[in-house]
């Protein structure tokens, strides 16, 4: 049992659930008759995709992608010194501060370059963060279209709307 958990369930369970949620959403999109149910299905489909992306970026025993910036005070001091030294000449100041940051990476490796394996992959998080907000904006557009359809046909059921559309066509 524990062997099954370790070798089969643990590496793939998230991906199975992403497929299951996607199937639920797709089924609701095709088979459900009510338009709001279809939209809930669409949102579930969307979260399934987001689950897939975020699952890809997970690392075992990793931290959240926010750095511990305990070396911050030293940086501030170093830059203040730079600013003081280069205050007379702007050009020299820029060059100097560039040089200072270049050497900083070597002098404080713990603050500037953490081990990538200890931190969750930030890229899927960035992509999905904007996807969620855009998703709710498009959900709003879809709901407004649903309200217009209800105003026009007085119903949210797909078959009743289709009947009315067909009747309207035969009349015209």
């Amino acid at each position: 049992m524990s062997e099954f958990v370790e070798t089969v369930l643990r590496p793939h369970f998230n991906f199975w659930v992403y497929v299951i949620l996607m199937m639920i959403g797709l089924w609701a999109l095709i088979a459900k008759n009510n338009l709001i149910k279809k939209l809930i299905g669409l949102s579930i489909f969307q979260t399934a995709i987001i689950l897939f992306y975020v699952s890809m970026g997970v690392k075992e025993n990793a931290n959240i992608p926010i750095l511990d910036h305990h070396g911050h005070e030293e940086h501030v001091v170093a830059h203040a010194e730079d600013g003081h030294a280069g205050a007379h000449d702007k050009k020299a100041h820029v060059e100097k501060s560039d040089h200072a940051t270049g050497s900083h990476g070597e002098s404080h490796p713990d603050a500037t370059s953490p081990d990538p394996d200890t931190m969750a992959n930030p890229l899927p998080h960035v992509l999905m963060l904007t996807a969620i907000v855009v998703g709710v904006a498009t959900l709003g557009v879809a709901l407004s279209i649903v309200q217009m359809i209800f105003r026009e046909y007085g119903s949210l059921e797909e078959d009743e709307i289709l009947e009315q559309v067909k009747a309207g066509n035969s009349d015209g």
């Binding site: 590496p11 793939h12 890809m56 970026g57 690392k59 075992e60 992959n121």
Partner: peptide, 12 residues
Amino acid sequence: FPGFGDPHSPAN
């Protein structure tokens, strides 16, 4: 797929 939580998967 590479295993869930694998730090050396292609995506990571």
